[in-house]
Simulated assay, not measured.
Amino acid sequence: MKDIMGLMKQAKAMQEKMQGLQQEIADVSATGQSGGGLVQVVLNGRNELASLKIDPSLLKPEEGDILEDLIVAAHNDARTKLEVQIAEKTQALTAGLPLPPGMKFPF
């Protein structure tokens, strides 16, 4: 019975830490860029597009395809950086827990 109470306390503490982590992740942002910085994309921790900046030199009708490719590349760069930050924060929280390899929390 004593072990069950201890386990319940650990579960509650973990739940509180996870809620804090979710808020921290929501506050994280990552900037991706492409074209040598001509296109910049900022994603927040919920993987939402927070901002998009395009250098005016790219706003020519004949360069529409290039601009589209640069936006996609900048978004992918930001998403990769964001995933790394989230993984680092999650790993810090779960350090020392006996979790199976590759287990991800549902954020």
Rank of each mutant, 00 (worst) to 15 (best):
Q23C: 02
Q10S: 03
V28R: 06
L38V: 09
Q10G: 03
A50S: 12
K17R: 01
L43S: 05
G37V: 08
L52M: 13
T31I: 14
S29M: 07
Q15A: 07
G20Q: 04
A11T: 02
M18E: 01
L38F: 09
K17G: 02
P56W: 07
S29K: 11
G35H: 07
G37L: 12
K53L: 14
M14F: 07
V41Q: 08
Q40C: 14
M18S: 06
I54N: 08
I25Y: 03
A13E: 01
G20T: 09
K12A: 09
D55L: 15
A13M: 00
Q15W: 01
K17T: 00
Q15M: 03
E24Q: 13
A30G: 15
Q10W: 00
A50I: 11
G35T: 06
T31E: 15
E48G: 06
Q33G: 15
M18Q: 01
A26L: 05
N47G: 08
A26R: 11
K17I: 00
M18G: 00
L21V: 05
T31V: 15
I25N: 02
A26F: 04
A50N: 13
G20S: 07
D27R: 11
G45C: 04
R46A: 15
A26K: 12
S34C: 14
L21T: 07
K53W: 12
L58S: 09
E16I: 00
A30P: 06
I54S: 07
I54G: 05
K12I: 03
S51C: 13
M8Y: 00
G37Q: 07
G36H: 03
L38K: 10
G32D: 12
S29Y: 08
L21A: 05
S51I: 10
V39C: 14
S51Q: 10
D55K: 14
L21Q: 02
L58M: 13
Q33C: 13
V41T: 14
K12R: 05
L58V: 14
V28F: 13
E16W: 01
Q15S: 04
L52E: 08
E48K: 13
Q19I: 09
K53E: 15
I25Q: 02
Q15D: 01
L43W: 01
A11C: 02
M14Q: 03
L58E: 05
S57G: 06
M14H: 03
G32C: 13
L58A: 05
L43Q: 09
P56C: 10
V39T: 13
Q10L: 02
G32H: 12
G35A: 10
